Amino acid sequence: MQGFNMGRYVPPELEGTTSGNRLNKKRAPGTLRKDGTQTVRFEMPFAVWCHTCKPHAIIGQGVRFNAEKKKIGYYYSTPIWQFRIKHAACGGYLEIKTDPKETAYVVTDGGKARDYGEGKDRVREGEDGLPILTPEERERRREDAFAALERKVEDREAVKDNAKRIEELYRSRERDWEDPGAVNKKLRNTFRRERKLRKREDDATESLKERLGTNIDILPEAEQDAQRAKLVSFGSTNVNAPNGTGSSNFLRSPARQTVKTPSRSKSSSAVKHSESKKDALRRRLVGSTRAALNPFG
């Protein structure tokens, strides 16, 4: 465009005789100054927190600035450069320098690099890092890497199997609930049957408690008790047995039998006679039953 040179206005009568920067007494970007500084285009290598902003604001990675570049030292023969940039949002300055030793950038003033959780130092092989590995150690680590890769392959196969099983379960569920009305009807019928069964069991338990005249909770019938009861069979009824030794006598309800408790004034012979009667009753009961386990043992 006529009248412009390097972005600065140059009158037509002076065009070709001078530059826009010289005419406006400005230094071109990138020109080295007498103090050793120069203006360059600098791009943020990572996100940085600006401490001048209140509250602290973050400058995203890749944001570009006109930075003042300056050489501040050497790492062996490699120059260390410092970049001073101005944050337009708050007017504060940040200083970032190169770190040839770690091949990284370091924020030295005005802010702080964002912590990505990767740790401050990166482990490298060589100086100030891991020792230099021998060929044998490298081969061993390579084999370990292959072993880890094989484990990853096995894990992927397990994930595929699990996914297949989950898919089968989903299909089974969809098949079972294809007709929700029929399934609900089946569930209701099952619930009604179980409810009636529980009602009969509760009524039988209450009736037994009324006959026994007790309020003690009666446990439900156990399978083990039913099996033991099947192993017991009583002898035949003998009404003509002397002294009432028939099974019809000792299997009577305890309510019809009256047991007299001996008084303290009775003699020891009466106590012995009562004990002998108990032993005789126990012997008759054992002799009249046939069981796999002695209930009095």
Rank of each mutant, 00 (worst) to 15 (best):
residue 22 R to C: 07
residue 246 G to H: 00
residue 241 A to V: 01
residue 215 N to L: 08
residue 12 P to Q: 06
residue 188 R to I: 13
residue 115 D to C: 00
residue 124 R to Q: 08
residue 62 G to Y: 00
residue 111 G to N: 02
residue 268 S to V: 10
residue 2 Q to G: 09
residue 79 P to N: 04
residue 25 K to N: 13
residue 146 F to R: 14
residue 105 Y to H: 10
residue 154 E to Y: 04
residue 162 N to S: 01
residue 268 S to D: 10
residue 107 V to R: 00
residue 82 Q to E: 15
residue 30 G to P: 00
residue 282 R to W: 07
residue 163 A to H: 01
residue 41 R to E: 09
residue 235 G to I: 00
residue 66 N to I: 02
residue 100 P to N: 01
residue 245 T to N: 05
residue 283 R to H: 11
residue 279 D to V: 05
residue 117 G to C: 06
residue 103 T to N: 11
residue 35 D to A: 01
residue 15 E to M: 10
residue 163 A to S: 03
residue 10 V to Y: 13
residue 151 R to E: 11
residue 142 R to W: 08
residue 256 R to P: 02
residue 15 E to F: 11
residue 229 A to I: 05
residue 26 K to G: 04
residue 282 R to D: 11
residue 244 G to Y: 12
residue 223 E to T: 15
residue 68 E to Q: 11
residue 289 T to N: 05
residue 97 K to E: 14
residue 209 K to L: 14
residue 258 T to R: 12
residue 168 E to F: 00
residue 261 T to R: 09
residue 192 R to F: 13
residue 200 R to S: 11
residue 271 V to H: 11
residue 210 E to Q: 15
residue 178 E to Y: 06
residue 239 V to F: 07
residue 172 S to A: 05
residue 125 E to R: 07
residue 291 A to C: 12
residue 27 R to N: 06
residue 88 A to D: 15
residue 41 R to N: 10
residue 170 Y to R: 00
residue 12 P to R: 10
residue 2 Q to K: 13
residue 83 F to N: 03
residue 163 A to D: 14
residue 217 D to I: 05
residue 185 K to A: 12
residue 36 G to R: 07
residue 83 F to S: 02
residue 202 D to P: 03
residue 198 R to A: 15
residue 53 C to A: 11
residue 199 K to M: 09
residue 102 E to P: 00
residue 262 P to W: 10
residue 236 S to M: 00
residue 190 T to Y: 07
residue 87 H to F: 04
residue 119 G to Y: 00
residue 204 A to H: 11
residue 156 R to E: 14
residue 288 S to N: 13
residue 265 S to K: 12
residue 140 R to H: 11
residue 285 L to T: 08
residue 260 K to Y: 13
residue 99 D to V: 00
residue 85 I to G: 06
residue 293 L to H: 09
residue 283 R to P: 13
residue 105 Y to W: 09
residue 241 A to T: 02
residue 137 E to V: 15
residue 78 T to N: 09
residue 256 R to F: 05
residue 58 I to D: 04
residue 67 A to D: 08
residue 138 R to I: 13
residue 216 I to M: 14
residue 143 E to V: 14
residue 8 R to S: 05
residue 34 K to C: 07
residue 121 D to E: 09
residue 237 T to P: 02
residue 272 K to H: 09
residue 61 Q to S: 03
residue 206 E to V: 10
residue 132 I to H: 03
residue 255 A to E: 12
residue 194 E to N: 12
residue 95 E to C: 06
residue 24 N to K: 05
residue 238 N to T: 03
residue 130 L to V: 02
residue 211 R to E: 14
residue 90 C to V: 03
residue 10 V to T: 10
residue 111 G to V: 04
residue 87 H to Q: 12
residue 280 A to K: 15
residue 241 A to L: 04
residue 292 A to Y: 01
residue 235 G to L: 01
residue 233 S to D: 03
residue 146 F to E: 14
residue 183 V to F: 05
residue 70 K to L: 15
residue 13 E to F: 09
residue 262 P to N: 05
residue 186 K to H: 07
residue 213 G to S: 12
residue 117 G to F: 08
residue 138 R to F: 08
residue 15 E to T: 05
residue 119 G to W: 01
residue 120 K to L: 09
